[in-house]
Design a protein around this nucleic acid. Structure first.
Lengths: 191, 191, 191, 191
DNA sequence: TATGAATGAGGCTTCATTCAT
DNA sequence: TATGAATGAAGCCTCATTCAT
């Protein structure tokens, strides 16, 4: 979608707030009014972009996992997927910046348009649940475990990936994956 | 500070973006121009407020910890402090919403002694380091551990506290504290 | 005419200014471009509607008058017609609101006979002149009298009919008709 | 008031709809934003202008009446005032056009901002009531009489004054005043 | 210090109108 | 005839910021 690509470019380049609808339309080579034929406002494109990009990443991570059909343990699958996403976002720092900032805003936003955020979370949750099923594993507190892992990874990796502080992602990865192992081992009941 | 209090009220009530400088000044009972005598712009007040409020919370949490001088373990101290802060933010959801993005950031407290202005750099990391010292404990990867705990708590508690989803804070606390225990036990080397 | 009906509905419902050409076309089940095949702009449809509706009312009032062929006096005919129109507009307040500014204007009715298009110029003045002829009555200042009566009725009845202030139409009618009687009696010379 | 004068000039020159707020501000030698310091929107200035101008005319008419303190009858006073206003509006056709059109619009307007119109009417009504008191006269249906006279004069004089059709004001005046005499004589009970 | 009227850049949004199909 | 995506002029309105007092 022409307008979404245009908006994405500008959001990445100038940030959400400094991007105007006039700029988005012009950059897309379209008239200002055309924007309103497809989106209600700037928030609307942003949400669409987040949904789109998130789905893309997730899909790629899953495709990658499919390649190795061999009997991996739940932890191995989880880490492989996490690793894929982290590497992807490291290659696309600006995308991570954008998605993270926006997700933060959605959460904070006054109006109840967290439909985006929850949809996004739900997708990831669903995927991890799939991993559990494939590995024939059950967890003590599945919902809380998944929620905790997602938030943990997302929040701890942001700064290392985006700005390399207080450590680089390479420095931090072993610690993080070890932490995930501790939490996973504690949770697994049947295999 | 009159203007900071006024701004805080309005940021909490209407959100940052929907609050105008005119509103802040008026609500403070001051003229619009007066605002610019004390702050450069809206971001400026916001930052000052975050610094102030964060320092207050941290100070209160530490004061609370001082009450119990008895020999608590590092984990017990850490949880007690965490618990205090979580409870405080639960009572002040709007404050949490407001400062959330900036938690973990450097906190600066200002105190005027005898006309001398001294600045204390004091952040959560520093505080936790103090806890370690008091408990005479050493960790394998101190810096990473502290970073991980702060991000973990901040990111996982946000949604439960602010909107009670996907679980209430009361439901989630046992899981979270157990996770912290796992990570702590794995890290502690000498006591 | 599909578009005129659609426009009429919307003008009545939302008012002229708040109705857009897009709405008119859509409500008519037609494409936006089709509108321009039949009308130049919004004013154009509005004028056509006014002409159509006015002609309808007048025609209905005259048909009603035809029913009673008995020898009515000029005043009786005039009042009967006035009364019919007032009642009609009371039943169709929104229509009155809409065409009010244009009442007293020239009305054009269009009829197609054998492919021949003939235009009848037919306005209220003409109709009243017809009444005079039928009643075999002459007035001192015919043109001024007719003009005055039309403006008087139109302007005084607007508010009572549309909003019932400063009195309801039922309260006001006796006064108005009495006033018309005074003016008529003063004018009639030969009967 | 600078902005009101500016708006008045432009409303008269280009009409209400074709006048923009930017034009009003610029013509007044002020910034665009300044307009909003004093008026909510275009309707707001228009209403203020109508109130102002109407009050001015009425005041002038009353001042004129004061000159002749001699014992005039109610009809004589009423006509003198009417005559003064008609002459004034004839000298200021554009003003009459503007006030009349606007009043028409206010009446037709969807929202209930007929506060203007009614205030205007009430003022005139009040004045005529004063005339009655001064002349020590009572009428059978005072309220209806006043309402009818105001509407009659306003609606019948518009076209003659503004465009001289279907007759000039000079041609029409005798007829109109005679009609007013008929209605007045019929109403007066005690003198 | 304190004020608040004035500013005008800047963004948003609507909608009549065109035109290729 | 009929369409409807695309256009962009046109207007609206807000609000951070300045400045004379």
């Amino acid at each position: 979608m022409l307008l979404m690509d245009s908006a994405y470019d500008l959001f990445i380049e100038k940030g959400f707030h400094k991007t105007t609808i006039a700029m988005i339309s012009k950059h897309a080579g379209l008239g200002k009014g055309t924007f309103y034929l497809y989106f209600r406002d700037k928030e609307d494109v942003r949400d669409s972009i987040i949904v789109q990009k998130s789905a893309q990443i997730l899909q790629a991570a899953m495709d990658d996992l499919e390649k190795k059909r061999q009997g991996l343990s739940f932890y191995e699958r989880l880490i492989r997927m996490t690793d894929y996403i982290i590497d992807y976002l490291t290659e696309n720092k600006e995308l991570f910046k954008f998605i993270s900032k926006s997700m933060g805003m959605v959460l904070i936003s006054e109006s109840d348009n967290d439909g985006v955020e929850s949809k996004h979370l739900m997708d990831l949750e669903e995927v991890i649940r799939g991993l559990l099923k494939k590995s024939q594993v059950k967890l003590k507190d599945q919902k809380m475990f998944i929620y905790t892992i997602i938030e943990l990874v997302n929040s701890t990796c942001y700064s290392p990936i985006v700005s390399g502080v207080p450590f680089t992602m390479d420095e931090y990865k072993p610690f993080l994956y070890h932490a995930i192992k501790l939490l996973t081992d504690d949770q697994v009941i049947s295999e």
